[in-house]
């Protein structure tokens, strides 16, 4: 059942990403990419805290099974390093389009491996031919959008 909701939610969250890149980029236009990312993480921390308080207010504390390992709290490092890497590559010969295209390749390749082997404590999943074909279509369409 969550799958029904998941498809439109995932597609919509891609739209959120477009808006986020647009708005965060407004800091970077006159500041630095580091400043843009620092501001986004700082204001985001405050926003997340407010969201958490609002969510908690309407719900009694639920007992969740299990404890997260310590590394599970470090996802933010990965995101922060991404910004540092891509802010150098957009200024290289790759420019924005090359950075985006190779970024898609990195995401797709890693996601396939991670699903196949169940990395990071998430369930392993079979990748079928139809999944690969769907991925190929989406990547091909993305390259057309990026490079034109």
């Amino acid at each position: 059942m969550p799958n029904r909701l998941a498809y439109p939610l995932a597609f919509a969250s891609g739209g959120l990403l477009t808006l986020m890149v647009l708005f965060n980029g407004q800091w970077a236009r006159e500041g630095t990419p580091l400043f843009a990312s620092w501001m986004a993480h700082g204001t985001g921390t405050v926003a997340a805290l407010i969201f958490l308080l609002l969510l908690r207010a309407g719900r009694k504390p639920s007992a969740r099974p299990g404890k997260a390992p310590l590394w599970a709290y470090l996802g933010g490092l990965s995101g922060a390093v991404t910004v540092m890497l891509t802010s150098t590559t957009v200024n290289s010969f790759l420019a924005l389009s090359g950075t985006l295209a190779l970024g898609l390749a990195g995401q797709a390749g890693f996601s396939l491996l991670s699903d196949r082997f169940g990395w990071f404590g998430l369930p392993a999943r079979r990748i079928g031919a139809t999944d690969l074909a769907a991925l190929a279509l989406i990547l091909a369409g993305s390259l057309l959008v990026i490079f034109t």
């Binding site: 490092l77 190779l102 898609l104």
Partner: peptide, 8 residues
């Protein structure tokens, strides 16, 4: 950079 998006 793309890989780390999926990692995080």
């Amino acid at each position: 950079g793309g890989t780390l998006v999926s990692v995080s």
